[in-house]
Computed example of a mutant assay.
Amino acid sequence: MAQSGDQGVRIGLSVVVMTLKDRQAVVLTTQAENGDTLLPFGPFDPARDRTFERALRDFVTAQTGFRLGFVEQLYTFGDAGRAVPRAAPEGDRPRDVSIGYLALTPDSAEGQTHDARWRAVFDVFPWEDRRRENAHLTALVTDGLTAWAGDDDRRLARIRALFALTPEHRWNEERVLERYELLYEARLVAEAWRDAGLSPPAVLAPGLVMGSDHRRILATGLGRLRSKLKYRPVLFDLMPGLFTLSTLQAAAEAVSGLTLHKQNFRRGVERTGLVEPTGQTSSATGGRPAELFRFKGVDPQTGAAPGLSLPAQR
């Protein structure tokens, strides 16, 4: 990793690579030598790498066999007291800083290296999927949080707002990181116990545990993508060249974790002018052939490219 003079800072690059597979939002993962599930991660070498992004693209291809398309920087992660990517060996402990990125691809083929695989995002954050009731999940998350809060009104207010536990609170799908951080603070995720050097209890909030601070980085990436859906046409970076409106709605639902109102969603798509019919149809659904559309792209005159509204069913 890059090391910064007397500061002893090492720089690494982590990336959330997301796509859609079998109508699920999935994230590309690798496996550490100790078996931990990780995001693709690599060092930045200032003597060799011209830019962070170029280094990122090169090591992702080397680790997974994938070539990245859309990429944007997320955040810099380096909090003391939390596990960081590829921690320094004993006797060599410079401060590790990881720069996180979000990358989108329409390619859901399996990774070309043995330890690269796609994992469902909601296997990592099952509480982020609001499309169906899950009483067991609700008990583990909300009851565990309520027990942790006790009589602390501030904690109770945060829980109610973030998990929309009362009618006056609306679920905000963009607050993925805040919900994960609350569970971490309450020590309801295994990473909190690991970072404190303690053995976790038998019962924790559900979800795939990830090595280092990678579940936190993934939470940041999912929240960013959900936010961008509404003001940029990023959903089309996950779509094939031709698609039906039902497939487009399923993609929006897979990312947002919401059940969307069919007619309102379609009217919203039509108002944006982002898609155009191709005159072709698809019978892949097994029912009546559905019309195929394509993404029109950014308006060359104005550069306008709005996002999509997400009209959730009530």
Rank of each mutant, 00 (worst) to 15 (best):
T259F: 01
A254H: 00
L229G: 03
F236S: 07
A205Y: 08
P240Q: 10
R226H: 08
G241I: 00
L222P: 02
L222E: 09
F243W: 04
L260H: 08
G211R: 07
P240A: 12
S256H: 09
N264S: 15
A254Q: 06
S212Q: 06
A219S: 14
T220P: 00
K228H: 10
T244G: 02
F265W: 07
I217S: 05
P206V: 08
G207T: 08
V255N: 11
K228R: 15
H261M: 03
L238F: 12
G221K: 02
L235D: 02
T220C: 09
L204F: 05
H214Y: 06
G211W: 07
R224G: 01
L258R: 15
L218M: 11
S256C: 12
A205I: 03
Q249M: 15
P206K: 05
V234E: 08
D213N: 15
G257E: 12
L245V: 00
S256A: 15
L218D: 04
H261V: 07
T259V: 13
L218A: 13
T259A: 12
L260Q: 11
F265H: 02
L225I: 06
A205F: 08
G221T: 06
L248N: 06
L242Y: 10
D213P: 00
S246Q: 13
A252P: 00
A251G: 12
T220N: 13
P240W: 01
S246E: 14
Q249R: 15
L248G: 06
S246D: 14
A219Q: 08
R224V: 09
A252L: 10
R266D: 01
V234M: 10
L258C: 04
A219L: 07
H261K: 14
A252W: 02
R216V: 10
D237H: 09
V234G: 07
P240H: 02
R224Y: 08
T244R: 10
T247Q: 14
L260G: 09
R215M: 00
L218C: 07
S212E: 14
E253N: 08
F243R: 01
D237V: 01
I217L: 15
K228F: 06
V209S: 15
G221F: 00
R232Q: 14
V203H: 05
G211I: 05
V209F: 08
R216H: 08
A205N: 06
R216W: 03
L225F: 13
R224Q: 14
P233F: 05
G223F: 04
V234I: 15
R224W: 09
L260A: 11
I217T: 11
V209C: 03
A219C: 09
F236D: 05
F236N: 06
L238P: 03
T220F: 10
S246G: 13
G207C: 02
A205G: 03
D213K: 00
A251H: 01
Y231C: 04
N264F: 04
G211Y: 07
Q249H: 05
L258E: 08
Q263T: 13
D237R: 13
A219Y: 05
T220H: 12
